[in-house]
Structure formats: structure tokens, C-alpha cells
Write a protein that binds this DNA or RNA. Structure first.
Lengths: 191, 191, 191, 191
DNA sequence: TATGAATGAGGCTTCATTCAT
DNA sequence: TATGAATGAAGCCTCATTCAT
């Protein structure tokens, strides 16, 4: 029964994500991860040399997933405004549908001590956003502001929207909140 | 030799703030805090029953300081727009001038496992902001959006501005960034 | 009852010596040392940062003791022969009376991986032996051989004597063995 | 592709010898041995039931080799003196030419916790030496000393010679050292 | 108030060994 | 014969916390 290769690795990653978001990186012993994942302690360290490597791997995966989700259907949009809007919708949708992953990423971003390599590597995936902002500025659709600031503001605003949206009671209310949030961002950016 | 009592407590708090922002809550042993603060290990636990209590105390203090800083000169402003602008300026100024404290608060906000009591208590200090937003909406100066969302967006945007501002090289550049950031917020909120 | 300072440190060193000689460095968990010494696990690491540091400390101590024992009464002897003889007697006597310490040192000397610093430092204590050999050579009492070789041969021969002496049944037999061993060394060295 | 079977077993033994002398028994994980030997972890345990058995096998082999080397050309020598001298030359030559194996044997001899069976079995190969000493004593060529002591002294002296010889810089220097060492032994033993 | 030696639960990681293939 | 993923006991060490002084 040693067939389903990598099955255990997946189980570990999945369990780790849940536990980390529930209890934090430091509140989650590796022993608990392996127990909940149904594998031996040694198995975790067979797939990930250290706890930190496990966290990093998780981060890279999720960051990739998020980046992919944000770009979904992006090529169908023509104007900068539409593209930014689509990105916003995608981002908020992904974050709302994957609250654990969102929480994980925020925890990661704000934790000292965890590998900065992964942090920087993750950022590189969002360079296209900066380019989009630049394009908007040159076309006169977007205000003439610092592109890095614009990216930073978009990211943090989405965070803010998601935080509020997650306390919404009805789906309708949540939709409403999300719509208002995206308007805020666009009104803040447009020329 | 006539050191005012509580001197050591202050030393502990000050040292803890620095170490926590440098190394994170979990990367900072209490033994290191006491050593760097120049007191014995036991002394720390004389003033704070647990490490968590030390963190909480620090949080409450800083949150109070931040709230006070945000309100500075607020009564001199008349309109809602002016008031919101002043709050924004104050907030960004405080965060920029107290990067350690800002970093501490963000770390605190995103760490599971640390007391939620302090977290909620801290939030209560910002209720006045919500009232201000409501006032703006009723007067027609501010968009008709969910007040909680507005507060959340303001807070996260300020975070975004500060993150970008902290990478600015010249003071002039920083001022520029801050100005653009505040414009973003207001344009996003105004009716 | 926290008075007898350093008492626990001594207990740890003493227990460690016994256990290391009985079970080897690697066959002796630090947890066993602390248990047998009647202290908490943490206490061991309060006095010695690592297991290796404990081993090193023990080594340095014992090496110092051995060196001191070898020199006992040395100034009363006049000729080189008498001095070498006294050193031999002292060395064998010490080793025979401190079998644990002797075993510890041999184990240490032959274990890879343990700090070489202590090993070299220990050697320096025996430089006087080399000088004595040199003196004997120049006076024509000792054969003209390489002084380093002579020191090495003395040390290893003493090891050989002790190994055999430790299997002696009666004290008289042991004395006989020791006498023969010392004769061997001197006959091997004399001009 | 027609590799003679047992090829892997040889590779394991060879690699193990090198690693053990470089890093010690406990500093060498079986996983490292198999990796360096180019075989799977399981393969090592196919040929040797336990790590200890691997060490024992290595020990027995090397001890046999050493014993054989010591006896080389022994039947051509007539007198006891000549025989002892030949043994000495052979022993030192073997040890000098096989430093890894020598180091391995010394490490083995001084490590507690490793099987004593092999240790005793190995000793039995050197009984002929004791007989030779006895013969020398009865013929009046060798001092009248305890034969066990004599064997012990010869073994340890050879160890001492090798230790010093291994730090020699030129081959000529080494030859010189070895010659002096053998003289020491004989002068120490002769009647 | 202040000290710092002492505690011990618990964390991360290693590694000899097994076993299904 | 040979593989290597999987196991889990056990090791070293950390660190929040206590308490006698």
C-alpha cells in the first residue's frame, strides 16, 4: 500500500494549512501536523527538511494559486479600468472563497523570522500589476501616482474589503460590501 | 541612586518593543528581553505575570498612543472632509515616525494565539471614526457605503501607504507618497 | 535551599564522568545524566550550553588533574632518569587510582567529532616532558631519538601498562606489573 | 552489466570505513553510508542486519588483515629477536600504509557500547605473540616480564610510533622515526 | 523590589530499521 | 537482490515560569 505516492505530502500540506491558520505557525507543533495528517513524525521531515521549509512551500504554492486566480479571464478585458476591475473581483472572490489561504498569507507576510526569500519571490508575481498601473497612467485613465504605491494600496485595500466581507451575514450583504470596496479602489485610482 | 520606581518596568517595555519588532513574539525569549533590558529574569515576571501580559500591555499602550496621535488637532477642523484628512495625516505621520510601534501593532493584529481581548478592546477606540463616516454620509460629503467597510478600508490603506512610504529614500519622496496616498483614500470615499 | 551554589554543577560533572566511561559519549543521553545527578534537564544546560561543552569541560579538568598528578614530587628528583621515573610512577599511580578518568581520556582522545580545541590545549600541558627528554639527550642519559616520538612512546606505554595492570588480581601482582612496565620504558629510552 | 554479485556489499564496506574514520561511528548515519556507496538505504540492511553488524564485520576483516600483515615473512626469521623485529616492522608498515584501517581499529577498541564479542575474538589472533615472548624469555633473549604485559606494551608502543610517524613530513623522516621506535621496543624487552 | 539558579514540559529533528514492491 | 518511502522512539535543547533569598 505504498502506491499513492506524494499522497502523504499532500495530506501534510493540507493539514498544515488548516492548523497554521487556526493556531499560528508557532502554536502548531510539527508533531500535531503529522498526527492530524495521519502520518508519522518522520514522514513530515522526509518531505520537508524543516518546519520552515514546510511553511515556505505552502506559501509559494498559495501565492502561485492566488496570482493565477487574479489573472483569470484577464485577457478578455480590454481597457485598463476593466482589467483592474476584473483583477479586483478575482482577488476578492479568491480570498473570500479561500479564507484559510488568505489568512495564511497575511500571517506569513507579517511574521518576522520566516524566510524572506519566499516573500520576495512571491512579490515578483505581481509585477504585471505595476505595469498595468503604468499603462493606465500613460493612457490617462489612472491618476499620476507612484506605481508601487498604487500596488501597495490595491493589495491592502483588498485585504480590508475581505476583512469586512468575512463578517457579512448574508451573501447579498457580502456582494454589496465587495462592490462598494471595489468602487472605493477604482475611485481612488482613476484620473 | 534615586531612580524613580518603575524604571525597570519601562526598560523592559522599551526593550521588548524593539526585540519583538526585530525578531517576532516567538523569536524573542523573555530571557533575552530581561538581559537586554539589564534586569534579572525574575524581574520581568514581577512586573508582568506572563509573557502574554507583557505583549498585551505593550499593545494597549501603543494603541492608546496611536489613537491619541490620530486625534491631535482634530477639534480645529470643521468639515468631515477636513477631519478625515487630518486623521489620515496624523495616522500616517505617527506610523512613519514610529515604525517599530507600527510594526508591532501589525504583527499583533495578525498573530493567532495572542489574547483577543486586547485586540477587541483596541478596536473600540476607533468607534469615533465610524461616527465620523456616518456623519459624512448623512451630510452627503461621503459616499453611501457601509461604515464598517469604510473604517476597514481607511485602516488598511494607511497600512499600505506606510509600507510604501517606508521604502522611500528622500524625505521629499516620502512626503509625495503620503500625499498621494491620502488623496487615494479621500477620492475613494468622497461622494 | 538554593544555597550550595555550584553543587549541582559538580554533581553533573561527576555523574557524567561515570556514565560516559560506562556507556560512552553517545550511549549516554543528557537526560540520563541529569536524572542520575538528581537535577532537572534544564539545569544541565544551564551550566553547560551543549553536551559537547560538558564533555570538553570534563576533559580539561581531568587533563589538568592528570598533569598535576604527574608532576607531584618532581622537584625533589635530581637526575633526568629519576625525574622520568617519578613521572612514570606518578602517571601509572594516578591512572590506576582513577580508572574512570583514565578511560574517559582515552575515549576522548580516540573519538572523532569532539572538539579538537580541547585536545590540542590538553597536549600543551605535556611540553615539559619533551624538554626533559631533550635535557636527557644532551646530557647523554637518554638515547638520541626524536623527542616527540619519546613523548608519544611514554604516553602509549603507560596506557599499555595500565591496561594490563587493571586486570591484575592482587595488589602485589599489580605492583610487579607496574615495576616491569616502568623498566621497559626506561630501558627503551636510556642511552 | 555482468557485475559480480556482492559488489554492493564491498562498496558499502569500503565507504563505511572511510566515513567511520572521518566522522566516527556515531557521526556516520547509515543513510549517509548508503548514499555515498551509491546504493539504497534498504540495501545496506540486506547485507548487514544492523549497523553494529556492519561495524563488526569491518572490524573482523581489518583485524584479520592486520594479523596476516604482521606475520608476513615471519617463518624466514630464525631467532626470537629477529621474529619480534619483523613483527614490529610489519605492524608499523601496515599501519602506516593503511592509516584509515588503523584509525578504525583504534576507534573501535576505545568505544564502549560496541559489541565486545568481536573485540575478544580479535585478541585471540595475537596469542602467538605471547608464545613468542614466552619463548624469548625461556631462551634468555627477552627480559623475564609478564607476557601479557609484554604484548600490551608492544601493541601500545606500535600505536605510539604510528601516531608520531603519521606527522612526519618526509618519507626519510618517517623511516627514521620507525627505526627509533622499533629500537625502543626491543631495548625495552631484551634481557 | 529584585535576583538568578533551578525547573520540566515540550519542541524540532535524526536515524536505524522495515516492508511492499 | 534491490529499492526508498515510511516509521516512531529517542535525543538535544529551549524557554516560560517559580521561588528562596
Amino acid at each position: 500500500m505504498r502506491k499513492p505516492a506524494k499522497d502523504k505530502q499532500e495530506a501534510i500540506l493540507k493539514t498544515a494549512l488548516t492548523l497554521f491558520t487556526e493556531r499560528g505557525f508557532f502554536g502548531t507543533p510539527t508533531s500535531l501536523i503529522s498526527k492530524e495528517a495521519g502520518v508519522a513524525t518522520g514522514t513530515l521531515f522526509f518531505y520537508f527538511r524543516t518546519k520552515e521549509e514546510l511553511i515556505d512551500t505552502l506559501y509559494r504554492r498559495i501565492k502561485g494559486e492566488a496570482a493565477a486566480a487574479m489573472c483569470r479571464g484577464l485577457d478578455k478585458e480590454k481597457g485598463v479600468k476593466e482589467k483592474l476591475h476584473r483583477i479586483g473581483i478575482n482577488a476578492v472572490a479568491w480570498a473570500t472563497q479561500n479564507p484559510e489561504k488568505m489568512k495564511f498569507m497575511e500571517q506569513f507576510a507579517h511574521s518576522q523570522f520566516v524566510s524572506t526569500t519566499a516573500q520576495e519571490e512571491g512579490m515578483s508575481r505581481f509585477l504585471f500589476l505595476k505595469d498595468l498601473i503604468r499603462e493606465g497612467i500613460s493612457k490617462g485613465t489612472v491618476k499620476d501616482l507612484d506605481p508601487d504605491l498604487a500596488v501597495s494600496l490595491m493589495a491592502s485595500s483588498i485585504s480590508g474589503v475581505v476583512a469586512r466581507a468575512s463578517t457579512a451575514i448574508t451573501p447579498a450583504e457580502r456582494e454589496e460590501i465587495i462592490g462598494q470596496g471595489l468602487d472605493f479602489v477604482w475611485d481612488g485610482l482613476k484620473a
